[in-house]
Write a protein that binds this DNA or RNA. Structure first.
Length: 438
RNA sequence: GUGGAUAUAGCGUAGUUGGUUAUCGCGUCAGAUUGUGGUUCUGAAGACCGUCGGUUCGAGUCCGACUAUCCACCCCA
């Protein structure tokens, strides 16, 4: 017995039984994005490694230890995208869309890859819905993005189960000042901090704020707050955003502890958090990245975006017992008895399909009863048995599997009769043909 | 990278203080007077008990290592 090859760690098979969850989430998120004027964009799964190093940041965890990088022929190296923004910014630049009339608004639904230790809500291959907007520095743009994410959660009935947290991490200038203030604050407590936080104190003091160890938390409680260090411009921007959100009636909490791990963020950052899907509760995260386009191209354009994890969204939906769209099932299953009948069924199925119906027939060569069971199992709405009798007389019966009602049908008029059956099937008065006593 | 938990048929499980042919349910397949599903009944197939090694007369049951999965740290969607 050959040993089975298993799926790579941290990946997931999405099986037919679950596919409608994904389709539901994908189609409605896209529809809402399009209501907001976003259009879909698709970019490569892999990009030049340098793109991520320069955008996500060469000191970020994502770049330093979580990228799937492959070397190609020559000296180039490529990386499976760990997030969606970088590739989209690259595409907007490369194709000149950034020079079209602004704002440019795009969305995407893509797989991303990060070499992390899998756990609840965290996979190595995961899927995100992302949206990016280029060209507006106005707080209305921030509000628009947040509102769009909010609308999606609202559409799925999740607005009460997912909390919006917002913060401003300022621009490079005011953040530098804040960083100094933080260092000055934590330095006296250096020995009391957890080991990782001691490192953070030197590398990235902002991270000290969301450490979960009790000791660090206690110390951090009295730490200076970014919001107090914002420059006038950043402060004004954040204040306006809050006002606009309030006008929209969007509930939010200002959470100074939100520090995003991707280096390109500036000013507004936000997260939608669920507290019922395990430790990885951030369903959606995003923010403004006004300097990224400029850093990548020298052509400065303000921009912002967000992304949410489809598996995390689906997790919260399942948690809430949400219902999803139904997949298409068989309209009619043609049960055949004997080779001659099967030929007829194959021909009929083909005709039915050409008329838009989902039709199936036996491909195994099973008997009558097993075929009936199979038809039931796959959720066939109707069944028609064809054997020597039907072939001889040309008369058959179409049976509604739910109600048991039967309709006489001439084999040569099959499509017309079946069409009539399908039209009355949902109505409650489709029973006139069911004079058969059972 | 660091912790903790778990590993028995396709799936979910029982397996007593180590003792002969390893439970049960779901699912699958086949039947229940020979051309009809969803209920019920009967039967069948399906597991070298994660892998390797050790203790023992004897291990699914004890010990060790490895591997995988899950959860948490970390990080983030």
């Amino acid at each position: 017995m050959a040993k089975l090859i298993k799926r790579p760690k941290g990946t997931q098979d999405i099986l037919p039984a679950d596919i409608m969850k994904w389709r539901t989430v994908e189609t409605y998120s896209g529809m809402i994005a399009e209501q907001f004027g976003f259009r879909e964009i698709r970019t490569p799964v892999f990009e030049d490694t340098g793109l991520f190093v320069r955008s996500v940041g060469d000191t970020s965890d994502v770049v330093t230890k979580e990228m799937y990088t492959v070397s190609s022929k020559g000296s180039d190296t490529f990386t499976l995208r760990p997030e969606g923004t970088a590739g989209v910014v690259r595409a907007m630049l490369e194709n000149g869309l950034i020079h079209e009339s602004l704002p440019q608004k795009v969305y995407y639904i893509i797989p991303c890859y990060r070499h992390e230790r899998p756990q609840a809500g965290r996979l190595r291959e995961f899927h995100t819905f992302g949206a990016e907007m280029f060209g507006s520095a106005s707080p209305y743009a921030d509000a628009e993005m947040i509102l769009m994410a909010h609308s999606i959660f609202e559409f799925f009935g999740l607005s009460d189960f997912v909390e919006l947290h917002i913060n401003s991490i300022g621009c490079p200038e005011c953040r530098a000042k804040y960083r100094e203030a933080l260092k000055a604050f934590f330095e006296p407590h250096r020995s009391e901090l957890c080991p990782t936080c001691r490192e953070r104190l030197d590398k990235n003091p902002l991270r000290l704020l969301d450490c979960k160890s009790p000791e660090c938390r206690e110390i951090a409680a009295g730490a200076p707050v970014m919001l107090d260090y914002l420059c006038d411009y950043c402060r004004e921007h954040f204040d306006q955003l809050r006002d606009i959100l309030t006008d929209f009636g969007v509930k939010f909490t200002v959470d100074p502890k939100i520090v995003r791990g991707l280096d390109y963020y500036t000013r507004t950052v936000f997260e939608f958090i669920s507290n019922e899907i395990g430790a990885q509760g951030t369903v959606c995260g995003g923010g403004r990245y006004d300097n990224l386009v400029g850093e990548l191209s020298g052509y400065s354009v303000p921009a912002l975006g967000f992304g949410f994890g489809l598996e995390r969204l689906i997790l919260t939906l399942e948690n809430r017992g949400a219902t999803f769209d139904e997949g298409r099932t068989c309209d009619i299953y043609l049960v055949s008895m004997g080779d001659e009948a099967r030929r007829k069924c194959a021909l009929l199925a083909d005709q039915l399909r050409q008329n838009g119906y989902a039709a199936e027939y036996d491909l195994i060569g099973r008997g009558l009863k097993p075929q009936m069971k199979y038809a039931d199992k796959i959720g066939a709405k109707h069944v028609c048995v064809i054997g020597d009798n039907e072939l001889g007389t040309g008369d058959a019966k179409i049976r509604n599997m739910r109600t048991g009602w039967e309709t006489d049908v001439r084999l040569e008029d099959f499509i017309d009769t079946f069409t009539a059956v399908m039209f009355t099937a949902d109505g409650e008065d489709g029973a006139e043909e069911s004079e058969e006593k059972e």
